[in-house]
Design a protein around this nucleic acid. Structure first.
Lengths: 185, 185
DNA sequence: AAAAATATGTAGACCGATCTATTTAGGAGC
DNA sequence: GCTCCTAAATAGATCGGTCTACATATTTTT
């Protein structure tokens, strides 16, 4: 793939992620993706010949990797588990508020919309969550109930992010931060 | 409103809730609602003259009240806070699994899809969550950090339900149950 | 109580807009 | 010269929503 092609491909994925985060899988039309990315229709189906499912699936996996990498950076920074949790929640809160309460978890909306109706997208979401769970498990290794704790931390983050987006307010994130830090102390 | 009218109205709301839980706001078409409820198009717009937004908004509020009432029943049953949490998670897990991983939280999908794009639906979701938070706050009254704790419990439940649906598995609910009980002990 | 009038609800054809996807053609880069 | 990629017209289906005609209750009038 040439350089130009790779760029349009990335622009299409960027636009897709943005639109899907704002309005979900069904809410994000391919016409909007085309308009937002500036790429013509033909390019979209050249780079993603299997259509919308492939496009959104790749977009989710890419976002999952990016966030997973941020997790691991923060985990490797030597911060305590509680500081780590605070950092994650603050970072996600900043992103959510700065986007006008649009960008929460890039996976959650699609997961809820598609888990019951699309096998490939359910699988993509499940795998991204599993990778985050594994990263948290590793960060918490050695603790009692590390496996349960990792899932609990992820659930708490996802739930807080959901409530914050629903209320269009950081309050749920702030309230949860203290409790999460206490849980990890 | 006559008896017959009230029945079709309820059938339309039932079908809407089912379809929205499975595929989200944009994923649930009015044609599907009509087919599933057996009501003709004219009846839909007679009972919900403001269209899809009104229909889904009422559906969410109705589901919110039903679950809120179940919360309060369980809270009034004399169970401890930890038992209460276990009961809620078990009940939600049963519902989720029995529906083929379709019925999680009836509000969450719409909240994530619409919070950034529709003021009336964002408000409806926010109000339902606020009512649940209030119910939990009351159940936890007297505790230290009762307000933070109520939001945390709700976030944990919502997050666990999201992960369970995404993985099509009760495992996240089971893992979180123990941690939530410990948090409330 | 019978009949007329009004409100309530049902039924589906129809509309323009938008959806995802295909196709055919040509330009850009190696 | 040949692959890679762009460009847009087009197709058929489905979308939310409107409209008119009709049926069924419910009330009003006589």
């Amino acid at each position: 793939m040439g350089q130009k092609g790779a760029e349009t491909r990335a622009r299409i994925l960027d636009a897709t992620q943005e639109l899907v985060e704002a309005g979900g899988y069904s809410g994000a039309g391919l016409n909007q993706v085309i308009a937002a990315s500036g790429a013509p229709r033909g390019s979209l189906y050249f780079h993603f010949p299997e259509g919308k499912d492939q496009l959104v699936g790749e977009s989710i996996r890419r976002a999952g990797q990016a966030i997973g990498a941020a997790f691991e950076d923060l985990a490797a920074s030597g911060a305590s588990a509680a500081e780590f949790a605070e950092g994650v929640l603050r970072h996600l809160g900043d992103r959510l508020e700065a986007s006008g309460w649009s960008k929460g978890c890039p996976v959650a909306t699609v997961a809820l919309e598609m888990a019951a109706v699309s096998d490939p997208l359910q699988q993509a979401c499940s795998e991204v969550y599993a990778s985050w769970e594994a990263a948290l498990r590793e960060r918490l290794a050695g603790r009692r109930d590390a496996d349960d704790l990792a899932v609990t931390v992820l659930a708490l983050i996802e739930g807080a992010l959901l409530l914050a987006k629903a209320h269009r307010s950081r309050e749920p994130l702030d309230r949860v931060t203290g409790q999460l830090a206490a849980l990890l102390r």
